[in-house]
Design a protein around this nucleic acid. Sequence first.
DNA 1: AGATCTACCTGGTTGC
DNA 2: TGCAACCAGGTAGATC
Length: 282
Amino acid sequence: MPELPEVEVISRGLAGELEERRITEVNVRYAGSVQGDAETFRKRLSGAEVKKVHRRGKLLLMDLQSASGEALFLGFHLKMTGRLITSDERPEDTPHTHIIFDLDDGRFLQFHDVRKFGYAVCLTQDEIKDWPFLKTLGPEPLDLSQAGFVALFSGRRGQIKALLLNQTVIAGIGNIYADESLFRAGIAPFTQAHKVPKAKLKALHGHLQDVIKEAIAANGSSIRDYVDSGGNAGAFQNDFRVYGRKGEPCRVCESTLQSSKVAGRTSTYCSHCQPGKQATKP
DNA sequence: AGATCTACCTGGTTGC
DNA sequence: TGCAACCAGGTAGATC
C-alpha cells in the first residue's frame, strides 16, 4: 500500500520517463477511476505535455501544459492497490487496467488498480486551488522542524496514532510508517497525544523522518501490491520491526508483539518497549 | 471544532 | 473440496 516513501519512489522514477513527454491519447477503460467527468479528463489531457512530476503526501502530482497552452494538473491517489507503470508495449487489457496514456515516444503509462479505491483527477489552475483534499492536507513530515512537529500534537486528546494517520494533521503517513515510527520512539499507539512526554514527541520526529528516508532508500515497502513505475518491488518490508509481525518476538527485547485496533486500523506494538495502557471505554 | 465510526472494493486467506 | 466469512486499508462523509 503506497504511503509517502512509495509514492516518492514512483514519482522519481516517473519524472525521468515522463517529463517533456507529450500525452498523445488517453483511454479510460473504467470511468470510476477518474474523479469527475471521464470525457473532460480525456479531452484536457490529450496533447498535453508533462512538465514536472512530483509528490505531495501520498498524492502523485504532474504539472502539464495542455495543447492550447493552459496549465493543467494531473493527480493520482493510489490508495491501497493502485499502480502506475510505464511500458514499451501497449499494456494488456486486464480487468484492472483502468487508464492507458499513449506517449509521444511510443511508450505507455497505465493506471492499474485491483481494488478500485484509487483515482486520477485532472484539474485546472483555478480548480486545484479549491480542491479540498490539497487545501486541507497537513505539512510534509520531512519539511517539519522538531518544534513544528511537536506543535501538531500539543493539547490534542486523540490517540497519537490516529493523529499520525490523519492527513489533515500531517501528510503521507499510513499504517506501516505510523507503527514503525511509534515503535522506534517507544510510544504505544493508543496513547493520547497530550499525554506523550515532550521528549518522546521530539524523538518521534526524528524516528519518523529516519523511517521515511530509509524506506525511500530501500525503494519502498512491498506488501502484496506495491511496485515502482518499472514494476520492481521495494525492500523495506524486510526491515519492519513491528508492522505485520503480531505474535513474533520483538527485535529489541524478544517480548511477543501485540496488536489491537487503533483508529480502526490493526496496530502492532511491543508492550514492553512501548509501555502504556489502553484507555477503557465507559 | 475535534474525535470517532462506517462504507467503499475485491483478492487472498481462514475455518468449517 | 467447496464456500462463506473475514481481513487488508485511505479517505469521504456522517455522527457524536
